[in-house]
């Protein structure tokens, strides 16, 4: 019993990381129709910068702010310099461009920071938390807390501000939105900046747990896709649920597969992603394919 509890706890904690990545992917997909392959690299970049700055004895808060700022700038560069302007852009071209950007960001991180993993200090020191036979690293409290705050903020912005309203309007019908005076280009920029910031925050809170190196972006991005698609790409809240679900399924699979089959657990998230794509394509596809005629 205490094992099941441990698996669920571990699943929810790793899942909260996937949820943060998935949320960024879902936001961009919702507003622009582009699937952003560089989302995982935002997480990597911020986490790695944060850890490196800490290793150089920069105070935690300053290191976090610097990592956040650099990552948001990279998001700005991606949207303004790499992607074609929204109106003229075809989404398949934009997707390939984000793939190119992802490769370049990873390569630059490798060249400037190196291949070794970097280690950040936990925000608060102390032994792991224990309850009912399960244990959890203290840092995960920060991850869950900050993830919850960020998600709440995203929800508030989307539902209670004019910008959020404009974003949702753009998502539903870009042409109608343009007619009512909303600039899709501005919305696209805003959502990329928001996604970069989300990714950066995720990377920073996870850095003490996951000892990031320059190669972690792709893996995180892939788990984020699984989260976003399973939850339904057009619903940011769905991406959060999807992320938690992927985390728990992975942990349960690792926990309950017989030891000779334990290697399969590694592929379970992608198998679930594939099943979701096959089983409910129309349901998942509604928004993104309602594209220009």
């Amino acid at each position: 019993m205490s094992e099941l509890l441990q698996y669920v706890v571990t699943g929810l904690t790793t899942g909260s990381a996937y949820a943060l990545v998935g949320l960024g992917i879902a936001l961009i997909a919702q507003v622009t129709g582009v699937i952003n392959f560089a989302q995982g690299q935002f997480v990597m970049l911020a986490g790695l910068l944060f850890a490196v700055l800490q290793e150089h004895r920069v105070p935690t808060v300053l290191a976090a702010l610097a990592a956040l700022a650099v990552t948001v700038l990279v998001g700005l560069a991606l949207e303004r310099l790499v992607l074609p302007r929204q109106a003229a852009g075809r989404t398949d071209q934009a997707i390939m461009l984000t793939i190119g950007a992802s490769i370049v960001i990873e390569g630059i991180a490798f060249v400037t920071i190196g291949t070794e993993p970097k280690f950040a200090r936990p925000f608060t020191a102390g032994e792991a938390l224990r309850f009912g036979g399960a244990s959890m690293d203290r840092q995960y409290l920060w991850v869950i807390g900050i993830a919850a705050l960020v998600m709440l903020a995203v929800w508030l912005v989307l539902t209670h501000t004019r910008t959020g309203w404009a974003m949702r309007a753009t998502a539903m019908d870009p042409d109608a939105a343009r007619l009512s005076g909303i600039s899709p280009s501005r919305m696209s920029l805003l959502v990329f900046l928001a996604a970069a910031a989300l990714g950066a925050i995720g990377g920073i809170v996870l850095a003490p747990l996951q000892s990031p190196d320059a190669s972690v972006g792709i893996g995180l991005g892939l788990k984020g896709f699984a989260a976003a698609v399973i939850g339904g790409l057009d619903r940011p809240a769905g991406a959060v649920a999807g992320g938690l679900a992927v985390g728990v399924v992975e942990a349960l699979a690792s926990g309950y597969l017989p030891s000779s089959q334990s290697g399969f657990a590694d592929g379970i998230a992608y198998a679930v992603l594939l099943v979701a794509l096959i089983a409910r394509p129309t349901g998942l596809l509604r928004r993104v394919t309602g594209e220009r005629v």
Binding site: L277, I278, L285
Partner: peptide
Amino acid sequence: LALFRAAGHYLTLATIAVGLVLAVVVKQ
């Protein structure tokens, strides 16, 4: 058969997933 019932860029994600699943399976 399964993937082209609807259009869209989900093929990109689905093809990645197929590759990743196969890569895990052949190791087992």
